[in-house]
Design a protein around this nucleic acid. Structure first.
Lengths: 183, 183
DNA sequence: TGTTGACTACACCGACCTGTGTAAGTAAAA
DNA sequence: TTTTACTTACACAGGTCGGTGTAGTCAACA
């Protein structure tokens, strides 16, 4: 039941905005009384926090080459942009709607993804993995925002092309076939 | 008076969010009655539209070299990020708060800035000015979002460095001193 | 049978929202 | 002086919001 509430809140918050969705609407959508909802979440603020924490999913590392993993992220972005429930980055939207109170969890999430990329970059290897990871993170963030204001998922491809240029300039060699570096 | 209302609305909308600021607060901030405010703007929606239109300022083209103009934009971004009234891109925030109804004017604004860069790029010149202008726009957008979630204005410098790499890779030559190409 | 826990319906609170209606005040123009 | 335009204070309508209180229903379990 708690999961049903959170799943519905996730869908509505992400689809229409946090401030635009009231607790009555969430409860009505599931078909439960508002009283039941408040038995599982003491306040809307708590529900919002659970919603953002749920979106905070750790990035998975596969066994594929680091470069491929990073570039594959942009393909995943394009599919996300093309999906009908894409409405921009939930964390950035939360900061825009709720102010700096939501900035902490948003920052944590972004930083975690950047560190994931940075670790991959050290295994490529490239010059200055730290700086490059920040640049790639900026590209990802910009692709999300641009895909939102335009309706065009293809900006992910432009961002991917830019990422390839940055990686090449940093000395990354595609598919060196010497992937004997066990991970 | 109309300007005073709009200026105050601009400050509050940008500083606290559109949905978070009521017309009462705007009127009280100026010291006028709510009735007076409604004499100049028939509805809050009209005031919001005026607020976004006001933010829609055409980019200025100077007589300086095209490359310098583009790179200078990132310096301007860093100063903006460091200012105390920075709260992300007002257009992206409006889309996040009001949904796709605000997407049109946001898209117009972003596209206008991209076209401005694209025209500058054709005068550099570079290969594929269209594609590169989209990539630079993504960098700008990403820098804004990243500076918002982190509190760090220095991401503008990382974005600028990335832009320099992209420009160099596209064949742009810094300060060719052969700026005889009159515009 | 009785008890317990979860759920429901529903009214209600206080606060805030956008927007209007009204009567009175004020100052400049006619 | 009279008219006209603008402003004020203030109440209020109609709605939504987050959140609570209460009484009752239902099923599982002892």
């Amino acid at each position: 039941m708690q999961e049903r509430i959170l799943a519905t809140a996730d869908r509505l918050f992400n689809g229409e905005g946090i401030r635009a969705v009231g607790v009555d609407k969430i409860a009505a959508e599931i078909g439960i009384s508002k009283r039941t909802l408040y038995n599982y979440y003491a306040s809307k603020e708590e529900l919002v926090h659970a919603y953002l924490s749920r979106r905070y999913v750790p990035v998975r590392s596969s066994s594929r080459p680091p470069l491929e993993q990073i570039l594959h992220l942009f393909d995943w972005l394009e599919r996300w942009f093309a999906s009908d429930n894409f409405r921009g980055c939930p964390f950035v939207n939360a900061v825009a709607e709720l102010g700096t109170s939501a900035a902490q969890i948003a920052c944590d999430f972004k930083e975690q993804r950047r560190v994931w990329m940075c670790e991959l970059l050290t295994r490529v290897p490239v010059a200055d993995p730290e700086g490059l990871s920040v640049q790639l993170a900026i590209l990802i963030e910009g692709a999300i925002a641009s895909a939102l204001v335009r309706g065009d998922p293809k900006v992910a491809r432009c961002a991917k092309a830019a990422a390839e240029v940055l990686l090449t300039a940093a000395g990354a060699r595609r598919d060196p076939e010497s992937s004997s570096q066990r991970v």
